[in-house]
Design a protein around this nucleic acid. Structure first.
Lengths: 155, 155
DNA sequence: CGGGAATGCTGAACATCTTAACAGTTATAA
DNA sequence: TTATAACTGTTAAGATGTTCAGCATTCCCG
């Protein structure tokens, strides 16, 4: 194919592949405890910052609200978290760690850290820092301008 | 939490967030044509390298075989690709672009490139190169050693 | 006070991911 | 040749992603 664009870098693809390479280190650990990636993100979040409302969990754990609803139901059914409505604003859902969830998190955390150190050892601490810096900058990309599709220009 | 580890960097999370920030630029374009991310990856792949067997599509597009099966069925139903068995080895499935799929790809490609250039403009060409280099290195992480869960140590 | 707008979560429909098991085909060796 | 292993793709089941719509609650302003 005559692609005169030398910048066909496929940034999203490489972000995806890199993430897969990294997750391969963590997945066995999580699977051995019957946890999904998302559930582990939520557990750690609650362990680190204490109970919070669902919307904040969604933001911090990068999970869309409709997904989060089901995930939290399953996690509560598994005895990992508690869900309760906010007293003063009954629209809000407060999510907190259960005792069981807390102890499980404390068990897994050091093993997770060990996986991370393996990665660090293979990849190099300096490059890892550099990569994280770039990623955090990229996260701050401004939202794309409306609809660049070129069709509809809202009234 | 007494986390004495100052390296709680959450690399997978940042890879995920960064990817989301980038995909936000491409999603509107793809949605406007009724394509998913995965379908677009497949279309571009076939346009770039010509027909190939399903396994290679899975590898190159970062899609697991069970997912690919359904995706290709839907894409064929939508008239975007053709599927046929290899004559000499009927285990293999050859996937190729249809005329309709090709023209759609050619329509979208320049708009996709435009999105990419927006990102490049915001983020900086140099940093983008640097990031891609690091990502490609990270992809080459060695597979984790067997089962680091601490339970079974075969042989 | 009252009603529309905004907020926060959930439901629904469809697509994809993830793991495990399965089926058809081909390669290999006794 | 024939039993077996290896290879390729698919099915199955459960969990999550993605978009849109809905519902309850709260806010805000006249």
């Amino acid at each position: 194919m005559d692609r005169s664009n030398p910048h066909q870098h496929r940034l999203p693809q490489h972000l995806l592949r890199a993430r897969e390479a990294v997750m391969a280190y963590f997945r066995p650990l999580l699977n051995s405890r019957g946890l999904t990636e998302q559930q582990w993100r939520i557990l750690r979040l609650l362990a680190d910052r204490g109970e919070m409302e669902a919307g904040m969990v969604a933001d911090l754990a990068c999970i869309l609200p409709p997904s989060l609803t089901g995930i939290l139901v399953r996690m509560e059914k598994a005895g990992l978290v508690h869900r309760r409505k906010d007293k003063t604003d009954s629209r809000r859902l407060i999510v907190s760690l259960s005792a069981e969830g807390r102890s499980l998190t404390q068990e897994i955390a050091p093993q997770s850290a060990a996986c991370y150190e393996q990665i660090e050892r293979h990849f190099g601490e300096a490059k890892l820092e550099q990569l994280l810096t770039l990623l955090m900058e990229l996260e701050r990309l401004p939202a794309p301008q409306a609809t660049p599709v070129g069709s509809e220009a809202e009234d």
